[in-house]
């Protein structure tokens, strides 16, 4: 009895140790970034490096907001991510429903291929196209290109959810006199609400974090946050403190969202795989 308990505790300990080993690289970098953002410039250049700020300072954050037009960039990022997500839901949820019901696996694969193609391969033509349409310098091209990321996520998450719904639920609606749209609107969509939530969160996160589209297509006024951080790096290479502070500001909303919604995200990603009853 005792040896069993001992073995269980040892097993538990081993598990935690290996989890710690696996996540420590990611965690360490992140902690180091927090440390950088809270230290003075002198501490940051010190050798051997100081990990715990003494005393901690918020100067870096103040500097970031004072020197850069972070408010504009935040606004840009919010507009881009929100509209890209909203448009993706508008298009992707019905598309996911259609693909799931028609078992159009080829259409689903096509969407996935569009997603997997490196963005750079079509960014140049797109850039020329938007220039020709004189849309460069506005947020429109960025929103449109972000749809390349958000639509496939929404479609694929929703396919899983709609495939998990028993067909009889919609057939019952059809025989009751509902058109396919009404069956979708009144029966399938309300039942897939958890899926819509997950699709929304994921597509928002991916859009928020996206860098490559905005760096090519954005002008000085239309930068999104990741691009803005990148510019901090370019022009003030040595000032690690403000850089870390800026990066933290950009990742914080997404990080918080993921932490708060992690249960739903995991549930959403695994839904439709195996579902009983």
């Amino acid at each position: 009895m005792r040896s069993y308990r001992l073995r269980r505790i040892a097993g538990r300990f081993g598990l935690y140790l290996s989890v710690l080993a696996l996540i420590s690289p990611a965690l360490l970098v992140f902690l180091w970034m927090i440390s950088l953002s809270l230290k003075t410039e002198i501490d940051n250049m010190d050798y051997p490096p100081v990990f715990i700020p003494h005393p901690p300072t918020l100067d870096n954050f103040a500097q970031v907001f004072a020197r850069n037009d972070f408010l504009t960039y935040t606004k840009n990022s919010v507009i881009v991510s929100f509209s890209a997500t909203a448009l993706a839901l508008l298009v992707g949820v019905p598309a996911g429903y259609g693909i799931a019901k028609a078992r159009a696996t080829r259409a689903a694969m096509l969407i996935l291929i569009a997603r997997m193609t490196p963005g750079l391969s079509y960014l140049i033509p797109l850039f020329l196209l938007f220039q020709w349409l004189s849309l460069t310098g506005t947020l429109v091209p960025i929103v449109i290109t972000h749809l390349v990321i958000t639509v496939p996520i929404v479609v694929w998450v929703m396919i899983g959810f709609f495939e998990g719904l028993p067909a009889e639920l919609e057939e019952a609606a059809l025989t009751d006199g509902a058109t396919i749209w009404q069956a979708f609107r009144h029966v399938a969509l309300p039942l897939a609400r958890p899926g819509v939530t997950v699709a929304l969160i994921l597509s928002f996160i991916f859009s928020w974090n996206n860098f490559i589209f905005a760096v090519v297509l954005a002008g000085r006024e239309t930068r999104t946050l990741p691009v803005a951080v990148y510019n901090v790096l370019t022009f003030e290479q040595i000032s690690w403190g403000p850089l870390a502070a800026a990066a933290l500001c950009v990742t914080a909303p997404v990080l918080l969202l993921t932490l708060v919604m992690q249960k739903e995200i995991v549930a959403g990603l695994t839904a439709g795989g195996v579902k009983g009853g």
Binding site: E168, L169, E171, A172, A173, T175, G177, A178, L191
Partner: peptide, 16 residues
């Protein structure tokens, strides 16, 4: 199906 003015009851009941 929606224009046949029928209704159907399924083995799984299929109530929403």
């Amino acid at each position: 199906p929606e224009r046949r003015q029928m209704s159907m009851i399924f083995q799984s009941y299929a109530i929403w």
